[in-house]
Each structure stands twice: as structure tokens, then as C-alpha cells.
Design a protein around this nucleic acid. Structure first.
Lengths: 218, 218
DNA sequence: GTCTATATGCTGATAGAC
DNA sequence: GTCTATCAGCATATAGAC
């Protein structure tokens, strides 16, 4: 019935198991069992377990940062546009981190794993995912800071905003109660958190003397 | 020369290796080698690898939350006292997370690992460390919110403040550059970040109508 | 308490039949 | 491409000498 190739089924099973159990605790045998493939096929298609791991990351992180690209391309000339851009950045990142469906869910989980235990795939995670996200935020922050502010000021805001979003990458049970309170629908909660965080950031930004200062809509 | 017992040396070596490489990737043989003990001694003293893992957590997290207890006991009656308490909470948490010396460094790392891949020791990590920290922050937040605010408002502030601090738990290379900019001494940077975060929080808190409202020093 | 020797099982990887 | 059979190595854990 299924028309997916053996290679793709292995890739998919590996993504799930590496995400759920980690690299060391996941065996080739287990992956092949779940993929309905022979134990020898991993080495046939991917040469080794480590190469398979890298391929999983290449696949998952290839396009994951694309929702952020649109924000990075926007023309932002007023404080109102800036607020909207920051809000969108936050909400989109929250949605990536707390995705429930594969493959986004596996990507979020694997990102979290690489965050605490970086491995050979760090360059992929950083280059395809973390850096584009951070760069988009950095550009926004710079736009809202007074013209002669130091790089350190930029970084403080990145740590604040990025950090508050990062929490949602650790949303699996039994930590889920920390992140998602009972009695609120999940997407609605993400919207509320994004709105709250945006509001707090906009108490301090844009600053007086920033490129956006005094250019608000009349 | 060293007078430490075999048991303690195993515990210490295990803490380091579990923190650096994770549970699955760390072998009993490796632990014993580093501890200068016989391979059979782990099972003699701890019955199994998993029991050893639990003992490591019991040891490391027994007293780690104690710097926060003092804050939880303070009498806070003015907005100024509240600001100072929030600032202290943030700075103390930042220092725990970014500790360089063992055993705090191992505890921070193991906490981060349990955050993305919770295991049988979750109750220890949560009960001895995470919950006390969160409870102290929660009490502070509640003090600064208007009297009839919902639990959800409390949670949004916890996610914001706690999240921004969490980032510092992932400070190992190659992620260190994300967290610590070049050209600033580390402790000085932590102070700056704590000050910045406190300032941002105090734009919104304490709220009008909170228990602290209108009770500032004259 | 500390050691050696060993039991038992699983790991990643490969050779070679089909 | 897919399979079985098998390799060498390392894992946890234990039995029993000292």
C-alpha cells in the first residue's frame, strides 16, 4: 500500500527514534524494525549510523527556517510595523518549537537535544535553523536600538526574547505542565504568550534615537 | 594521598561523565577507570548503573536550590524591595546555570539533559531544584500582580523570566558564543543581563492594584 | 572491599547468497 | 535491493577467590 521507498522509511523512522530516545540509545536494529526494513539496509543506504544521523538532520532542517524568511525581507519603517514584525517572529518561533505533528515535532526535539549535547551535526542545526532565526531577530533589534548602541545591547535583547521562546522547545511530558497551563487551548495560549512577550519588549523598544524613532504613522 | 572513599570517587566520576556524555553513552567501565576503581565496584556500591545515576542526582541536587531559599523568606513590602528580590532571583539563577566549577557545573548540565530527555530521576530534579526555584519566582510575581489576576498571568511572567534565564544552562561550546559575547568578563556579563532583564520586567511590574502598589518608600 | 574471570546479550558493521 | 549469517567488540552484571 505504502509507496514510500525503503530509504525514506528508514529516514523517517530514524528521525522519530533519534528524537524520542537520542542517538546513543537508538539502535540500527530498532530503526529498521520500525521502518519495516532489513537490518543491513541502513549500512547499504547510509554507510553508517552516524551518516544516517546527519542525513536525518539535513532532511529535517532543510526548510524549517523558511517561515522566518518572510519577516527578514519586510520593509519596516514605523514602530507599528516593527511591533508587528517582532510579534510575528515570536509567534512563528513558538509554533515551530511546540509543533505536535511530525516532522516539525522531531525537528524541535532534535534541536533541543543538540542544544544540550551538540554533536557532529551542529553545523547543520546552526546554519540551517538557529542562525537564520537569530539573524532575523538581530536585524529587528538593531532597527529598534538607538544608533550608537553596542553589540552587547543587541545581545541582551536576543537572549531575553530568544530565551523566553526556547522554553517551548522543552514541552514534552512531564515538563509540559510548566509550559502549557490547563484549561487553555494550545494555539490560543501561544498567541497569548506571544502578545505578552511582545508587549513587554515594546515597553523598551523602539528606543528614542533609533532609526524608527519619530517615524510612526501620523 | 587522596583520602576520599571509593564510593565518593565513583560518585564524582559518574557525575562528570554523565554530565559530559549522557547516560547511555557513559559506560560503567569508563566511570571506574576515571575513578581509579575496579569495574565491579559500581555494582557493589550502587547495585546497578541506573541506581548510580539516581545517587548522582540525589547528591548534586540536595542543596543546589539553597541560594534561593533566602529570597523566598524575605519580607517584601515596597516596590523597591520587590525589584531587588527579582534582581537577586535572576542573578542567582544565572550563576547556578553558568557555573564553571564542579559540582555546580555538572548539576547545571545534568539539569539541562533532564530537561530535554527526562528519565527516572525527574522527580529529584523537579522536587529539589526546579520546583523550589519556580515557587520562589511565582510568589514574587503574585506579589506584584493586581489582586484579581488569573493564574495564567502569573505563568506568562514565569515563562518570560525563567525562559530568559534557562538559556544560560546551554552555555557549553559551541553554543557559548550565543550566550557570552567576546570582550566582557563572565561575571560582569551576568550582572548586566540580570540588570537588563530586571529593568524590562519592572516596566510592567508591580502592577497598579497589586499588594505592593502605593506602598513604596516615601 | 577489591579483584579476576566470566556469563549473557546487544551493538555496528560486513560478506556473500539470492 | 534485500536477505541471512556472522563477525568482533563492548555493554551490564555477577560469582567467587583473595
Amino acid at each position: 500500500m505504502s509507496e514510500t521507498s525503503t530509504r525514506d522509511r528508514i529516514l523517517s523512522a530514524a528521525a522519530e527514534l533519534f528524537a524520542r530516545r537520542g542517538y546513543a540509545a537508538t539502535s540500527i536494529r530498532h530503526i529498521c524494525e520500525q521502518a519495516g526494513a532489513n537490518v543491513a539496509s541502513v549500512n547499504y543506504y547510509f554507510r553508517s549510523k552516524e551518516h544516517l544521523y546527519e542525513e536525518v538532520f539535513r532532511m529535517l532542517f532543510e526548510t524549517i527556517a523558511s517561515p522566518l524568511e518572510e519577516i527578514a525581507r519586510r520593509r519596516i519603517e514605523t514602530a507599528t510595523q516593527w511591533r508587528e514584525a517582532i510579534h510575528d517572529w515570536i509567534l512563528k518561533v513558538l509554533r515551530i518549537f511546540s509543533a505536535e505533528d511530525p516532522p516539525q515535532r522531531w525537528a524541535a526535539k532534535l534541536f533541543a537535544r543538540e542544544r544540550v549535547a551538540p554533536s557532529s551535526v551542529f553545523p547543520i542545526v546552526y546554519g540551517k535553523f538557529f542562525h537564520p532565526l537569530e539573524k532575523a531577530l538581530e536585524d529587528l533589534i538593531r532597527l529598534a536600538l538607538a544608533r550608537r548602541r553596542s553589540e552587547h545591547e543587541v545581545r541582551k535583547w536576543i537572549l531575553l526574547i530568544g530565551g523566553a521562546c526556547d522554553v517551548f522547545a522543552y514541552h514534552d511530558a512531564p515538563w509540559d505542565e510548566v509550559v502549557f497551563p490547563a484549561g487553555v487551548e494550545k494555539q490560543e495560549w501561544l498567541r497569548q504568550v506571544a502578545e505578552h512577550l511582545t508587549g513587554v519588549v515594546c515597553c523598551g523598544l523602539p528606543e528614542k534615537g533609533s532609526p524608527l524613532d519619530g517615524e510612526g504613522p501620523k
